[in-house]
Design a protein around this nucleic acid. Structure first.
Length: 190
DNA sequence: AGTTCGATCGCCT
DNA sequence: GGCGATCGAACTG
């Protein structure tokens, strides 16, 4: 596995990072997957962003330096992984919504017994954190140092990027900030 | 201190 | 397609 993506990769606008990170590899402790679906959350004019109402104990890391994990606990059961973007002091992050499993499938299956097919192991934001073992304790983790890392794949595959509105939000719901690899079977929704 | 509701998932009909 | 699980963050008073 090659070196993790450098901090400069993440020190850009959230929509830019959300597009460019498609096809990259997310890894933790030998378990990894190809990022096939993301959503961008903006620093300004985005009421759906957790950072929209300023710095709180929860949203603190979103305003911190880029390339760190923002992990939050939702619906009493699920952890969701975001990657902090933009220069330090500016909010903005990318929600990782789905992975195509690459390595460590046996461990993913143990952690996700409800998944009937391998495509279902990590095809949702709550599913992929469970499949990889990502929890709230990883909040603030530096992705350029690990243990959670993002890499360019050894051999890049060609793919088309599709865009849509974001899933599961009620405010700022019309912004086209969801990005996914077209026709990939591990995307959470068409 | 109490209330509301959520960037979800899986099971039920 | 609908809904319950399950609990913390944020807001109200």
């Amino acid at each position: 596995m090659e070196a993790p993506l450098p901090r400069a990769f993440f020190e850009r606008s959230a929509p830019q990072v959300a597009r460019d990170i498609l096809g990259k590899t997310l890894a933790l402790d030998g378990v990894s997957g190809r990022i096939v679906e993301t959503e961008a959350y903006l620093s300004e004019g985005d009421l759906a962003a957790h950072s929209a109402r300023g710095v709180t104990p929860r949203t603190r890391v979103i305003f911190g330096p880029p390339g760190h994990a923002y992990v939050y606990f939702i619906y009493g059961m699920y952890d969701c992984l975001n990657i902090v973007c933009e220069p330090e002091g500016v909010a903005g992050c990318v929600l990782i919504r789905a992975l195509e499993p690459l390595t460590g499938l046996d461990r993913m299956r143990k952690r996700r017994p409800a998944a009937r097919r391998d495509e279902d192991l990590a095809n949702g934001p709550g599913k992929l954190t469970r499949a990889l073992g990502i929890k709230i304790t990883h909040n603030g983790s530096d992705l350029t140092r690990g243990p959670i890392t993002v890499h360019s794949p050894e051999a890049a595959k060609g793919f088309q990027i599709a865009t849509s509105t974001r899933i599961g939000i009620t405010q700022s719901a019309d912004l086209p900030l969801r990005f996914f690899i077209k026709d990939n079977p591990c995307v959470s929704r068409r």
